[in-house]
């Protein structure tokens, strides 16, 4: 079966600095993959390559079997046009560390914007679908609130609804709980966990080791722009092979 996400020999530079040095990994349908590693190891950059928020310089990213971002023209690797990039980005949903809700819109409009303007859904239908997902993340009662009237955890749950309502093939979570007050982390993790249990395909960059261990089908450990080790969470967390992962786990709190 075609994997939902396939990354092949991915390289990415910021100027002279190479931050991804050849990444290979796949995510199967319904799989939950956590990417862990120290700050600066390249995990957020990798995630942002999956929806073209970052350009990459070599290798391929395939979403649902479709190579994204670039095509070959007379043997040259060329970035595809803006409309195509936008269409391909909508195949993935992203949840950001800082929530990034549109501050001038209600929770409901945050969710319906993409449905009406990208998916071309009529507004009544978009509202119905948005209500469904807002309900699903426990935010239906606050659908008319502005982001500034919501707590961080509530904002993040709206952001999850905004992304998932677009029915992406895969959800990308970029340290979705790192900016939250400690007492708000649980509600967001619970939301993510229940979506995972329903079979949503997910890639999570996270510092929540216990969560990564409990929810993931596969854990990817990154170190200095490379994947140092990947496998099922039981093996990585209980019997890490590489000394670097052993050291990393020692300094991480569970």
């Amino acid at each position: 079966m075609t994997p939902i996400v396939e990354v092949r020999d991915l390289h990415k530079r910021f100027g002279e600095l190479e931050v991804l040095k050849g990444i290979d990994f796949t995510v199967a349908e319904g799989e939950v993959v956590s990417i862990i590693g120290a700050s600066g190891s390249g995990k957020t950059t990798l995630l942002r390559c999956l929806n073209l928020l970052e350009e990459f310089h070599r290798g391929d990213v395939l979403i649902g079997g479709e190579a994204i971002g670039y095509h070959l023209r007379r043997g040259q690797r060329v970035r595809i046009g803006e409309r195509e990039v936008a269409r391909q980005r909508a195949m993935t949903g992203m949840v950001f560390q800082a929530f990034n809700l549109f501050p001038h819109m209600s929770a409901l409009d945050n969710v319906t914007l993409g449905l009406t303007k990208v998916r071309g859904m009529p507004r009544p239908q978009a509202i119905e679908l948005a209500d469904h997902w807002l309900d699903r993340v426990g935010m239906l009662e606050r659908r008319d609130h502005r982001p500034s009237q919501l707590s961080g955890g509530q904002q993040q749950r709206v952001a999850i609804a905004r992304a998932i309502a677009m029915s992406p093939k895969v959800m990308l979570f970029d340290e979705a709980t790192s900016a939250l007050d400690p007492e708000r982390v649980g509600e967001v993790l619970e939301t993510i966990r229940s979506l995972a249990q329903e079979g949503m395909t997910m890639v999570l960059v996270t510092h929540e080791m216990r969560f990564a261990r409990d929810v993931s089908d596969k854990v990817v450990f990154m170190e200095d722009g490379r994947i140092a080790e990947q496998g099922p969470p039981q093996r990585l967390f209980l019997n890490p092979e590489s000394p670097r992962l052993q050291a990393f786990l020692k300094t991480s709190s569970f």
Binding site: R83, A86, N100, G114, R162, A163
Partner: peptide
Amino acid sequence: GLVEAGQAIGLTSLRIKRY
């Protein structure tokens, strides 16, 4: 981050400007 949030849901840059 808001521009990126718009990009992430598949809005084109013209629509990101407008909305």
